[in-house]
């Protein structure tokens, strides 16, 4: 009988287990290890900075609410995508994304380059009631973010953790993270008021403010790099 060679293996559980482990580890080693050593897999874009304190709070709220479950942040190099969403996503843009938020299902549109596409006040109204702006939208309302005060007690620790993972925050930025976040929130709130949103003092310090700051930051690194390259190339 063929396959008699396999019989002794079936009788040796330790040997069988070790061979199984060998079989499942090879593919992972080949696929996962080299990218860390290959040049160009993921250097930050030129002039790219990590998220500001408020943007980072917003990003963590985006994760908390599972926005990534319905919105991708990865534009594929296909004409239909670049036409709809802008330049395709490049590796360096993700250098400060922990975790990555590319998503796997576009129940809603891609957000990789949504920053600057709409005014802050649009986002405020859209979070409050998506169907007031687009009756066919199936997005949940996130009005509760506008009523929930932004908790900045962990902001410093968030930046410190990311700094220890290599994000280029200065010590002063880590130490002043909470103050910076609140100052930035005031700027966003002032802008919302200027755009005609009647903000109460609690709303002006709400989680929605951080969420808007984050959404408006999406795609900025690429835009800046592109502007820089155009500027350099033009002279």
């Amino acid at each position: 009988m063929a396959y008699e060679w396999h019989r002794p293996l079936e009788a040796r559980s330790l040997r069988f287990t070790l061979l199984t482990f060998l079989a499942v580890i090879v593919g992972g080693l080949v696929l996962l290890v080299p990218p860390f050593f290959l040049q160009g897999t993921m250097e930050p874009l030129p002039g790219m900075r990590p998220y500001s304190a408020l943007e980072l709070e917003g990003r963590d709220l985006y994760i908390r609410e599972g926005c990534n479950v319905c919105h991708s942040q990865m534009i594929r190099p296909l004409a239909a995508e670049t036409e709809r969403y802008g330049h395709y996503t490049v590796a360096g843009e993700g250098a400060y994304d922990r975790p990555f938020l590319w998503g796997s299902r576009r129940t809603g549109p891609d957000l990789a380059r949504v920053g600057g596409k709409y005014p802050d006040s649009w986002h405020w109204r859209h979070l409050e009631d998506p169907r007031a702006l687009e009756p066919r939208s199936n997005m949940p309302s996130f009005a509760f973010l506008q009523r929930t005060p932004l908790d900045t007690s962990l902001t410093s620790r968030r930046l410190a953790a990311l700094r220890s993972l290599g994000h280029p925050y200065t010590e002063a930025e880590v130490a002043g993270a909470e103050r910076d976040a609140l100052a930035e929130a005031e700027r966003v709130a002032a802008n919302l008021r200027a755009e005609g949103i009647d903000l109460g003092s609690e709303e002006a310090r709400s989680e929605a403010i951080a969420m808007i700051a984050y959404l408006q930051s999406l795609g900025r690194a690429w835009k800046n790099a592109e502007a820089g390259a155009a500027g350099a190339g033009g002279r």
Binding site: M42, G94, L154, R157, R158, A161
Partner: peptide
């Protein structure tokens, strides 16, 4: 174990030790 290596910030918040493309690669592995 490999995919969940993360740096805790608090009891219920952590950051992945991998970023961007690497994180995506390991997550989908």
């Amino acid at each position: 174990i490999v995919n969940n290596l993360e740096l805790p910030v608090s009891w219920w918040k952590s950051y992945s030790v991998y970023a961007g493309v690497h994180d995506a690669n390991i997550q989908w592995w």
